[in-house]
């Protein structure tokens, strides 16, 4: 099933995130927040508020954890290899 995303959005793995807050500080639209919940490692992880992402990629590039942040850009088609 191919699915075209109308809006870009970030996906943050709550279990991998170490809660360093770099992405929250780097987001130009302030659409990332630190969750009140804890993950299995005991970190307050970062999460997307659900709308407002412009797909700038800042959170991806500032995140020190290779697999914590994935950003789907506007023209992403699921199943496609970038």
């Amino acid at each position: 099933m191919n699915k075209q995303w109308e809006y870009p959005y970030p996906e943050i793995d709550p279990d991998i995130c170490k809660g360093c807050k770099l992405c929250v500080a780097a987001c130009p639209k302030n659409v990332l927040v630190i969750s009140s919940k804890l993950n299995s490692k005991g970190f307050h992880y970062s999460e997307y508020v659900g709308e407002g992402c412009i797909g700038c990629g800042n959170c991806f590039y500032v995140c020190p954890e290779p697999s914590a942040v994935t950003v789907y850009l506007r023209n992403y088609v699921e199943g496609e290899v970038s």
Binding site: G57, F60, S67, V69, T70, L73, N75, Y76, E80, S82
Partner: peptide, 11 residues
């Protein structure tokens, strides 16, 4: 043009 930013294959 990249359509997704995810963990690079270099890892």
């Amino acid at each position: 043009q990249k359509t997704v930013l995810r963990k690079p294959k270099g890892f």
